[in-house]
Simulated assay, not measured.
Amino acid sequence: MLIGESINLTGVGKQFGGKSVVEDLSLDVKAGEFISLLGPSGSGKTTLLMMIAGFEYPNTGQISVGSRDITYLAPNRRAVGMVFQKYALFPHMTVAQNVAFPLKMRGAATKDIACRVSEMLGLVQLAGFESRYPHQVSGGQQQRVAVARALVAEPPVLLMDEPLSALDKKLRESMQLEIKRIQNRVGVTVVYVTHDQEEALTMSDRIAVMSGGRLVQVGSPLDLYHRPSSPFVAEFIGKMNFIDGEYLGSDQGTSCVRVSKTVTLQSRDATGAQLAHFRTGAAVRVAVRPEQIALRATSPGSSKDQLTGTVESVIFVGQAHLVLVRMEGQGGSLVEVHVPSGARPTVFAQGEMVVLEIDPADVKLYPRDAGRTR
């Protein structure tokens, strides 16, 4: 079994043509951890990966693997495996020859190479494919060959740059589980670059969310989904509804926000330290996930202080129905609600008035001027 090593990034910065693309970034990755760098295009995640790999050097800061300072080492001296977006397999070599290539470059004995190649192809479930060429295997199999080649020399760290982006949805989902299985089996430390938040949630022990060359939040998938530190993270990790309001104050940890002339929402999400940043009368933004909103039809006795809206459309998306509700008293804001398919959401018809019910524990609270997706 391989034993992964820790990665330490301290104050790492990178500029191209005077423009900062990674800025004063520090991150500790545990040995054997699978961490994803997640962010939109231009967030700096691939540049950061290239600096760990040695294909780019930082202008400032230090990069260490275990106890070794690798900041300015050449790529071939870092003991780091790499899987590229397009796999970069040699088309004139067989599957076995591709996997054996790193060992041949190191001058390993022929017998040892054959044994190690057989072991790695068994690990990635490609035993029997040794004599085939890259064009004779599927995209998913090519991806497995690339993983086997990256791991054959037993690197403590494996870097992966959006390796599944060229695959179709079903194969991509299958390969996510396969890569995670292999990583658990060999114990290598993985740094994985992706812009796909579902992919990051599925595969990662932790996720490092990047924006504008900076880390904006690092945590487990559950932490980022249920406790996003900003509207940017809340909107980038999953779906999120945002509703503008006025902060009215808090009592024993429960905040009250006016979202229309007659309607207020309560939030029990913010801690005491967070509430210290809010002032009575301040413009705020409340956020709630689509699956955390319950809908019911209005009735003659419905109170005017309830959050209501009009059903604009109901869309079947497989496991759930997506109900789009045009809110009353919010300038016509559109809210997404996910209703499980088994809950018979067809009781809601286009044009019907509904009440939106939200548990205060599910309501996130942010300052109005906090940034959203950039």
Results as ranks from 00 to 15, higher is better:
S220G: 15
K239V: 08
G18A: 05
Q292Y: 10
L322R: 02
P300G: 00
L89H: 04
S41W: 09
Q306N: 12
T110G: 05
L37S: 04
Y225Q: 00
S36D: 05
S333Q: 14
R279F: 12
L167T: 02
Q306P: 01
V257P: 01
I63N: 07
R149D: 14
D24Q: 11
R344E: 15
D269S: 13
V12E: 09
R181Y: 10
N241H: 03
F84K: 04
D359C: 08
I35H: 02
G213Q: 01
G212W: 09
S131P: 04
L164Y: 04
V335N: 00
A79D: 15
Q15M: 09
D196T: 06
G272L: 12
T71R: 03
T60Y: 12
G61M: 11
Q176M: 11
S302E: 06
Q319W: 08
A148Y: 10
F90S: 05
G253R: 06
Y366G: 04
A108P: 01
V193M: 08
L103F: 02
T346F: 11
G212D: 15
L9Q: 02
S118H: 11
I3H: 15
R368P: 04
F348E: 08
V257K: 06
D168T: 00
I70Q: 04
R172C: 06
Q125L: 13
V363D: 05
F34N: 01
T202K: 06
S313F: 07
R144D: 15
L167Q: 02
K180F: 00
T202D: 09
L126F: 07
T110A: 15
C256V: 14
V80C: 06
P91M: 14
Y366V: 12
D269E: 12
L324W: 02
G219F: 08
M82N: 00
S313W: 09
R289C: 02
V95A: 04
S255A: 15
P102R: 03
G342E: 14
G42Q: 08
V117T: 04
M327N: 01
R285D: 12
V218L: 14
L167R: 03
V12L: 11
E56V: 03
L48C: 06
Q142V: 09
S41F: 11
G128F: 14
S250V: 07
S174C: 11
Q330I: 00
E33D: 09
H321Y: 14
R258N: 08
Y225G: 02
A320R: 03
K104F: 09
I3A: 14
L73N: 10
D251Q: 11
R132V: 11
K364T: 06
E352D: 14
E5P: 03
V218W: 13
V259N: 09
L73G: 00
N184C: 08
Q125E: 15
A114M: 10
F129I: 05
P367K: 07
P221V: 01
A283D: 15
R185D: 15
R268L: 10
V21E: 00
V317N: 15
Q176Y: 07
D223L: 13
D196F: 10
T373L: 15
V147K: 00
S118I: 04
P290V: 02
L49M: 11
Q330G: 07
G11K: 06
A114D: 13
